[in-house]
Amino acid sequence: MKKLVLPLLLFMFLTGCNDDQKTLEVNDIGGEESEKVKIIMENEEEIYSGRAIFVEDQLLVAVQAKPWLDYKKTKIEKNLKKKLEESFPEYDITVSSDYKLYWEAQKLLKEDDGEKLKKKVEKLKKLKKEET
């Protein structure tokens, strides 16, 4: 029994980091914009998952940085925001790698009521700015 513990642990450690499948989700507005966002996120090497929410003139993108790249989150956010701004100059873009925004974005993906959606996105933008 004791001899099995070490190989088992090693196995768990090694399989934990073996997942290259990217999960990308965009809320349903139709048109080429959602495809465009998906392509941009697909090309971003440093993230493993991303969710984008379009509402009126707002675009909220919540991503998750790869575990070992957690320390340069702000840089990843900045780069992605720059790329998105080039493709969507007419949108007010918010990019975040925070887990809170990522989690809330999942709920917003299913939200159909435009008014509510906008309110929630505004709230998330405010949360992102909070420091303490």
Partner: peptide
């Protein structure tokens, strides 16, 4: 309503 930045406290 805590973000990764504020959840430490």
């Amino acid at each position: 309503d805590f973000t990764e930045k504020t959840v430490g406290n």
